[in-house]
Amino acid sequence: MMITGVKVTLILLAATTVTSLTLGTVIAIMRISRIKILRVLGTLYVEIFRNIPGLFWILFFYFVFPDILPWGLGAKLNAYLHYPIVAGILGLTVDNASYVSDILRSGRLAIPHGQREAAISTGLSRVQQYLHVLLPQMFRVTLPPLGTRMVHNFKNTSLCMAIAAPELTWATQNIESLTFRGIEATTIATLFYIFLAGIMVSMIILLEKWWKIDVSSMSQSKA
């Protein structure tokens, strides 16, 4: 049960890290777009998903979402054995993406205007400007808060116990109620959380060191 818990937590972590970073980047670009409707939609997204608790979204995707889907898709989802995990991924993604997008947007604001002008004047298209000049710098400037946010997202995977996704916290609780070996189970879970968060933090620190050279130069080109 514990091993399944670790597996599910890792699945939730891996999936939501990828999806929430992707969705967050898209929303961030929408919010700084020059097209007004995209800006409005992006802002609306952030305000809705950031101002309602993540736990609510996990419950929403588990209990409500299948019911509002047309063509009997909902019934199929409910019948799906692993739907709690899927609902958990959806809930965590929409929640975390709202924070990611706001962090990345602040990164865009920190990039000097001249960077885009240089990219424009060499003939790069808008997509190329983002891919090669703006986005790499946005991730570099925002790495510290972004990293913290991703660790937070990791801890939020435990919220999925509310919909009985068999992740680590759910497993711990279950072991406790079935065997009364709460102390052992909780200790193992604690160590695992600390261990994995430690790995994440070390990766972020390594990345920070790796990128340090460019980040420190950004303040200079702003001068």
Partner: peptide, 26 residues
Amino acid sequence: GMVFQHFNLYPHKTAIKNITLAPRKV
């Protein structure tokens, strides 16, 4: 070509990568 007062080199790229970006992409 345009050259700016504050250089506006891409800080996350080396000198050579700064130069090769646009010729490759454009």
